[in-house]
């Protein structure tokens, strides 16, 4: 069969019409490769399914055990596995509090940096400044955890507010450091959105006599709003799921408090601490971390879906 495919040009010219089968041959190898390639693409489906199945399975065991019920889980404010109290709120509030502090740092700074980079900086300056943000984005989070614990808490917070007012482990320090960690993400996503705004809009604004600031704030930022909102939501999702900074700096032990100067464990911090210790697979503590993770998974999933929806819903399309 293979021999027939090699036909020289002279031969080809002499072959009468209809003698060569021009229909595609069935190629077994090609078909196999197609299947292999499809499987590789579909492995991501396996990952998602496995995550959902695993989390639901263990959480089912957790909620099925006599010590727990759903009303207690979502309705009470004490998490003490030792005494059988499983109210998720103390973990939830500290997660939200640290994330909001992080956003309060990352959103204004990130947006400011993005506006500067896209509207003010010369191409050369951008060439120098962007890599700095990229380096900041590449630092592993455990290093930020070290930074929070050895610098932000003792030097900045205890230095400014007094040693007796700030606990060694506290949510403010974790939140501030997390804000610095998220800043590059916020900045680069917003900058992408700002740069995508067509030049004609800026020219129009300048033509009407607007200054650079007025053009940036009243024309470019509103035009890029969907992208900026998406950046905020993705930053929030990153903050909620961040583990190492809060595990090192926010404290070990759930506490229901809204005072950011106190220690309180977050959802991710709790999962890390419990699974890092020696726990038996049969214990309720083991299944409880899967229940927390399930809540965490849905929180981040919701935020990610929301960011996608915001982009689609509020995107301004320019032609």
């Amino acid at each position: 069969m293979e021999q027939k495919a090699h036909v020289s040009i002279e031969q080809a010219a002499t072959i009468p019409a209809g003698a060569v089968n021009l229909r595609g041959r069935r190629r077994f190898g090609e078909r196999m490769i197609e299947i292999i390639v499809f499987i590789c693409g579909a492995i991501s489906i396996f990952t998602t399914t496995a995550i959902v199945v695993v989390l639901f399975q263990e959480a089912w065991l957790f909620f099925g055990s006599p010590e727990v019920d759903l009303i207690e889980f979502f309705g009470t404010t004490r998490w003490q596995p030792e005494t059988g109290r499983f109210g998720i709120w103390p973990l939830m509030t500290s997660t939200l509090l640290t994330s909001i502090i992080a956003l309060m740092v990352a959103v204004p700074l990130g947006l400011g940096a993005a506006i500067y980079l896209s509207e003010y900086a010369s191409p050369t300056a951008r060439g120098y400044l962007k890599p700095i943000l990229e380096v900041l984005a590449g630092v592993p989070t455990v290093v930020y955890g070290y930074f929070a614990l050895t610098f932000v808490t003792p030097v900045i917070l205890q230095g400014l507010l007094g040693r007796e007012n700030v606990e060694i482990y506290n949510m403010l320090s974790a939140g501030l450091t997390m804000g610095i960690m998220i800043l590059p993400l916020m900045a680069s996503m917003s900058e992408d959105a700002l740069s995508a705004v067509p030049r004609s809009l800026r020219e129009g604004s300048y033509g009407l006599g607007a200054t650079r600031l007025e053009t940036s704030v009243r024309v470019v930022v509103p035009a890029a709003l969907s992208g900026i909102l998406a950046a905020v939501i993705v930053s929030m999702s990153r903050a909620v799921g961040e583990t190492m900074i809060v595990a090192l700096a926010a404290g070990a032990g759930p506490r229901f408090t809204f005072n950011p100067l106190q220690a309180a464990e977050t959802m991710t911090g709790h999962i890390a601490r419990i699974s890092g210790g020696d726990i038996s697979y049969a214990s309720i503590q083991y299944t409880s971390i899967f229940a927390i993770a399930l809540v965490l998974f849905f929180m981040t999933l919701l935020l990610n879906l929301l960011s996608g929806w915001v982009v689609r819903r509020f995107r301004e399309v320019y032609e």
């Binding site: 496995a50 989390l55 799921g241 583990t243 999962i271 993770a293 998974f297 981040t300 999933l301 990610n304």
Partner: peptide
């Protein structure tokens, strides 16, 4: 439909907190 499913799924997976992958690894 399954191409779009895989595509959306990959983008969402990139946003799943890393600690959840840890729990997946622990269980599986």
């Amino acid at each position: 439909w399954y191409y779009r499913l895989i595509e959306t799924n990959i983008n969402n997976l990139a946003g799943v907190p890393s600690i959840i992958y840890g729990l997946l690894g622990l269980a599986v």
